[in-house]
């Protein structure tokens, strides 16, 4: 159970485009905040067309000059958050929340492998700099679709030099995760941030290599999946409800919007508190959580509503609501 978060008003001090669709934002909180450790993120209340939406962004490097730096990729399908960020003008005010770290870096390991895919470079960037400063033994493998998508690659080259290796997908370069794991010291740690597929592969190869689960560290803000975000329908026979989930809303948000009583914890696919049973699905369910095991996901009998969605069509689900009058009383928008 998270502590209630304190709103902090802030100002967008400057921006810079790192790539055609990744923009760096420098955010200046009105009052000085604590320093942060690598892997930390802030939550930003992002203005969108509808109501503002809460989005988590990893912080780039230490907070030492009173500014928080984040990098945001403009995504057609990121549930409206990135577009809202990209519309912000320098000087505009915004609301943020105190930084937290759920992707903490361990110091003192004999060896580290950092794996970044696309915009997943943001927390990894801060880690690479910190490890470099600590004179640690590490390698950073960073993959993106095209050369110009490699945000922060120049900065990284300057700071960590040879420890960085870049992989450009459209030039046929791929990270051989399996052999990289094999080269890592047996007491080493692997940190991953990237698309869901990269994480899944890394997890699989990590456990096949017999490495301790606790030494694979990853973070996912649950905004990528096997399919692009598309609208779909939810049906809840118990409550006689039918709900539309727009492309830019999560299932959990749509359920809450419709007045369905939900509990949740992390809202990023980790804790399993928002899970509901699937009764029937007309299309494939795109499981984007890290709560279920591979086998559980394959059974397709439950869904993490905060991050997972249907590729299209309709999913029929159940809720734990056993109120005697099964008719749902809240207004349905």
């Amino acid at each position: 159970m998270a502590k209630p978060m304190e709103r902090i008003s802030a100002r967008l001090r400057a921006t810079r485009d790192l790539t055609p669709d990744v923009r760096l934002f420098e955010i200046e909180p009105d009052r000085p905040l604590v320093n942060v450790t690598p892997g930390s993120h802030i939550d930003v209340l992002v203005p969108t067309d509808g109501r503002p939406q809460l989005r988590s962004y990893s912080l780039l490097g230490p907070y030492t000059d009173g500014l928080y730096r984040i990098a945001v990729k403009r995504l057609a399908s990121s549930r409206g958050g990135s577009a809202g960020m990209w519309r912000l003008k320098v000087g505009e005010r915004l609301t943020i929340f105190e930084p937290r770290n759920s992707f903490e870096l361990s110091y003192g390991r004999p060896d580290y492998l950092l794996l970044a895919g696309g915009i997943g470079i943001t927390p990894i960037y801060a880690m690479a700099l910190a490890l470099n400063q600590a004179n640690a033994n590490f390698r950073l493998l960073y993959a993106a679709h095209s050369r110009r998508d490699l945000a922060l690659a120049d900065e990284l080259t300057t700071y960590v030099g040879e420890r960085l290796q870049l992989f450009v997908g459209e030039e046929g370069q791929r990270i051989d995760i399996g052999s990289e794991i094999a080269q890592l010291d047996t007491r080493g740690e692997l940190y991953v941030c990237g698309p869901f597929g990269m994480l899944e592969t890394a997890k699989q190869l990590w456990s096949q290599a017999g490495r301790p689960t606790a030494h694979l560290r990853y973070e996912t803000f649950g905004n990528t999946g096997g399919f692009a975000d598309a609208p779909f329908k939810i049906r809840i026979p118990r409550l006689s409800l039918e709900i539309d989930v727009p492309a830019h809303r999560s299932m959990l948000e749509a359920l809450e919007d419709a007045g369905v009583d939900m509990i949740f914890g992390c809202r990023r696919g980790e804790c399993g508190l928002c899970v509901l049973p699937i009764l029937e699905a007309s299309a494939e369910v795109d499981h984007r959580d890290v709560f279920f095991s591979g086998e559980e996901r394959a059974m397709n009998s439950k869904v993490c509503t905060c991050v997972s969605r249907a590729a299209s069509g309709c999913v029929t689900i159940d809720t734990p609501d056993r109120t005697p009058d099964q008719r749902h009383s809240s207004k349905v928008s």
Partner: peptide, 26 residues
């Protein structure tokens, strides 16, 4: 939690929440 502060076991579930850890002090 292991000596680096990483959670290595959670009851009643098949996976471990990747956020679960406590601070390890040098």
């Amino acid at each position: 939690f292991n000596s680096a502060g990483r959670c290595s076991y959670m009851p009643a579930q098949k996976t471990i929440n990747p956020s679960a850890c406590v601070r390890a002090y040098p």
